[in-house]
Structures are given as structure tokens and as C-alpha cells.
């Protein structure tokens, strides 16, 4: 059941899932190794569905999946995965009458930490790891959105999981809370696998060693953030006015326009970012489908 240091933590192929007539995932295949992997994609791309499948919360209609060396289709495999998994859902729920400590302690019981002393030590450890040691006695209803998110992260960290799945963990956080969260996730990514779903390309650049782009239920890209940015090489340019022919065009802080798309002859090219590469990939796909 154990995973070797070099083997993939998650191996998925042909994952397909429908919600009624809507095809949420279509033959999704990817592998996940140690470190932080970003899952990028527009709204409705299937990110949450994919994360829920990997986290054993959802069942695909077909496909193969191995998580941490186990097959979640079997009861014993699912239990083995869950014992080594931490999952932070997109919209985590809480019992508002519980304190932060009580809630994480409740999740710790569900994570089979039955020895009271060991469990309380573990709860204190994870609350400290997310910077909530001072707020442990505070009722969840009295905590800010960012603090609640950290309570949910603390619950996900119980038992020091080998695989951590975070579904848009920074949505709704202010910039300071986001930076704080980023620090915590970066630290967590050392020595374990983190699969992080996000809308924010700067988060991918700051945190992720690898990135998967999901669009309309299919994997459009799998590689490093640098490779993703390189997709837009030679297709990002600047000028003094708007370029209607560009895929995207906006006025930057410098006062000049930045364009992504096919540049005119002699354009002043710029070094592409992850965002540019992502834009090229997603918009190009949209264009291809529009003309198909």
C-alpha cells in the first residue's frame, strides 16, 4: 500500500463523470507526485469534481484511479486512502457552536485518534501550524472567514497526511490572509503532496512545482508553471494603444497596453507569465470549439 519516493501519489486515467446530461469530466488522465501541484481552470471546468473524486468523496462513472498506492473503488482501499489524506473542501462547513479546538477535536475522533491525550496534542499541533493557537477556545461563529478557513485547514492536517487536497482555499480571503495562507501551504508542500485548486495564476507561480489546467472537463495542460508560461512565448506584446485583434488586451500600470494573442509584425514582445499561458490555452480552446 505504501508509495515509493519516486512513484506517483495519484495516478488517474479515463476518469469520466456526468451530472445528468452534463459531462463534468471526460477521460481525465494525470499523475501527481510529491510537492505542490496547482489545478487551474475556469468556473465549471470540473476542478471541484476532480478533487472530490481523488479525495474519495465522489465516485466517477468510469475510469481508473490509484491514490497513495490504493484503489478507492474497494472498501479497504478507500479506508487506506482516507487514513493518509487531508481534504479541505471548497466550502467547508462547521458547527458554529463549537470552539476551534472542539471542532478539530471532533474531526480528530473521526480520523480515528481515539487516545484523548494523543488526540489533544495533535489538535494543538495543527492549530499551532495554522497560526490559531491563541484562538483555540473561541467559538467558530465568532471567527473571521480567514480564521474559519484555517480551522478547516487544521482539520485537514490532522494525522500529518501524505496527500493534502485543497479546493480553492484562498477564496474570500483578504490579501493579508491570502499571503498568510500561502506561507502555510508552502511549508506544507515540503515533504508531502499537495493538490491545490485555484483561480489565481499568481498563486500557481508562487507555490506550485507543477500545474494541471482543466477546461470543460478535460485536461488541457500538465507540466511546470514555466512550461505553461512558455505557451505564450512570442505572443505577448506591448504597445501604446488597444489591439482589437488580440485575445486579451488591457492597460497596465505603466500606462501602456499589454496584449496576448498573435502579435503584429515588429511588435515589442514581452516575457510571458503563467497567466498569459493560461489565457492562450483556455481562450484558444474556446475559439477552436466556437469555430468547430
Amino acid at each position: 500500500m505504501t508509495v515509493t519516493a519516486t512513484g506517483p501519489v495519484v495516478r488517474a486515467s479515463d476518469l469520466t463523470l456526468r451530472y445528468g446530461r452534463t459531462l463534468a469530466l471526460a477521460d481525465v488522465a494525470f499523475t501527481l507526485r510529491d510537492g505542490v501541484t496547482g489545478l487551474l481552470g475556469p468556473n465549471g471546468a470540473g476542478k471541484t469534481t476532480l478533487l472530490r473524486i481523488v479525495a474519495t468523496a465522489l465516485v466517477p462513472d468510469r475510469g481508473q484511479l490509484t491514490v497513495l498506492g490504493a484503489d478507492p473503488r474497494t472498501e479497504s482501499g478507500r479506508l487506506a486512502v482516507r487514513r493518509r489524506l487531508g481534504y479541505l473542501p471548497q466550502d467547508p462547513g462547521f458547527h458554529p457552536g463549537f470552539s476551534a479546538f472542539e471542532f478539530v477535536d471532533y474531526v480528530a475522533i473521526l480520523k480515528e485518534l481515539t487516545n484523548r491525550r494523543v488526540r489533544h496534542e495533535e489538535v494543538s499541533r495543527v492549530l499551532t501550524a495554522v497560526g490559531l493557537a491563541d484562538q483555540r477556545g473561541k467559538k467558530i461563529r465568532a471567527l473571521s472567514g480567514g480564521m474559519r478557513q484555517r480551522v478547516a485547514l487544521a482539520a485537514a492536517l490532522l494525522g500529518d497526511p501524505d496527500l493534502l487536497i485543497l479546493d480553492e482555499p484562498t477564496v474570500g480571503l483578504d490579501p493579508e490572509q491570502r499571503l498568510r495562507f500561502r506561507e502555510v501551504v508552502a511549508e506544507l508542500g515540503e515533504g508531502r503532496s499537495v493538490l491545490l485548486s485555484t483561480h489565481q495564476t499568481e498563486e500557481v507561480m508562487a507555490l506550485c512545482q507543477r500545474v494541471i489546467v482543466l477546461d470543460r472537463g478535460t485536461v488541457r495542460f500538465e507540466g511546470t508553471p514555466v512550461d505553461l508560461a512558455a505557451l505564450a512565448r512570442g505572443r505577448v506584446w506591448t504597445s501604446g494603444s488597444r489591439a482589437p485583434e488580440a485575445l486579451a488586451s488591457w492597460r497596465a500600470g505603466t500606462g501602456r497596453y499589454r496584449h496576448v494573442g498573435d502579435p503584429p509584425t515588429g511588435a515589442e514582445l514581452l516575457e510571458p507569465t503563467v497567466e498569459d499561458g493560461y489565457l492562450m490555452l483556455v481562450d484558444a480552446t474556446a475559439d477552436q470549439e466556437a469555430y468547430a
Binding site: R82, D91, G93, L110
Partner: peptide, 18 residues
């Protein structure tokens, strides 16, 4: 009804036991 259902969806203690 359990407002924390999402947060505990993937714990090792399975739903029948919960």
C-alpha cells in the same frame, strides 16, 4: 442535518458509522 458534512466527507470513519 449536519453543517459540517463537507468537512468530514473523507474521514476514515465511514458514513454508516457516523
Amino acid at each position: 442535518d449536519d453543517p459540517a458534512a463537507r468537512s468530514i466527507a473523507t474521514v476514515p470513519t465511514p458514513r454508516p458509522v457516523r
